[in-house]
């Protein structure tokens, strides 16, 4: 039993099962005909979308996948980096300094429940149908989990380690850099992972309405012209990219938190 169960690629069972169910549901017409495309149709459209010659085939999407992926990825990365560049230092100060916490934290808590989607009209009114609008939404969405997790990580710093550092002659700046930051790092990285997830959500929302390129734009455009096959292919594309970017941060955190993995095995 155990030898066999080790050889079965269990992770693939559920996705393949769902794929089969989808295929059967469409071909047996359990779903209204012409609305939901079959897996094969999606695969074919996706292939053309990626590898087709641009402008030559009947599909206006032919060969535009890579450029749209690059648009969206660039926006995600830019928005995410802005969010991290503001969220991590701000979180450090909120967690470290009571005055900063009293000054900034209530406002963050007040704005946080406002969904990214609710910011859309405001964002377009202020930034227009340009990249800035998308970056604002992505950055704002990713900012909250990053700042909150950083703050939490800082507040969790072991009092004994702070005392040890002070006893060894460390001032505030050294303590922040050598004790508080590394101590909060696991939490910060969790915030970054959550943040990049939100960034992919935000980029789709932003591109659907606030800009005229990227996967979100394609998704909305394809919906308007009833190309559900492209819609589904877009969903898969976003899922893959989100998964990949999460893995990158995960592998990075395994590297920088080597001391912590040792701790878990001790």
């Amino acid at each position: 039993m155990s030898v066999i169960s080790q050889r079965v690629p269990w992770f693939a069972v559920l996705p393949l099962g769902l794929l089969a169910l989808w295929h059967v549901a469409v071909t047996q017409q359990w779903t209204p005909p012409g609305i939901i495309p079959s897996p094969a149709q999606v695969a074919e459209s996706w292939y053309t979308w990626i590898f087709g010659a641009p402008g030559k085939s009947l599909s206006p999407y032919s060969g535009t996948w890579v450029s749209n992926v690059l648009y969206s990825t660039r926006r995600v990365l830019q928005g995410f980096l802005i969010a991290a560049a503001i969220g991590i230092p701000l979180g450090l100060f909120i967690g470290w300094n009571r005055l900063v916490a009293n000054l900034v934290d209530p406002s963050i808590q007040l704005f946080r429940p406002v969904p990214i989607t609710a910011w859309l009209p405001f964002s377009i009114a202020v930034f227009g149908i340009y990249d800035a609008s998308a970056l604002f939404l992505i950055g704002l969405g990713a900012f909250y989990p990053i700042v909150l997790n950083t703050t939490h990580g800082v507040r969790d710093t072991n009092l004994l380690l702070l005392r040890a550092a002070r006893m060894l002659g460390a001032g505030q700046a050294t303590i922040l850099r050598k004790v508080v930051f590394p101590s909060a790092l696991p939490s910060i990285l969790t915030g970054l992972r959550l943040g990049i997830g939100v960034a992919w959500t935000a980029v789709i929302v932003a591109e659907m309405i606030a800009v005229k390129s990227g996967l979100g734009y394609v998704l909305w455009d394809a919906y308007y012209v009833s190309r559900m096959d492209i819609c589904v292919a877009t969903m898969f594309s976003v899922g893959m990219l989100g998964f990949l970017s999460d893995r990158v941060i995960y592998v990075f955190s395994r590297l920088v938190l080597r001391w912590r993995t040792l701790e878990a095995h001790a």
């Binding site: 072991n158 004994l160 040890a164 550092a165 060894l168 002659g169 004790v179 590394p182 790092l185 001391w259």
Partner: peptide, 27 residues
């Protein structure tokens, strides 16, 4: 607190992200 008064705590209170050498050279 002052480095002229060294404290050894009940728990070792080492910096877990630093190696033995980096812990000793922290001060």
């Amino acid at each position: 607190p002052d480095p002229r008064r060294g404290v050894v705590f009940q728990e070792p209170a080492l910096f877990p992200w630093y190696t033995v050498l980096d812990n000793i050279t922290f001060g």
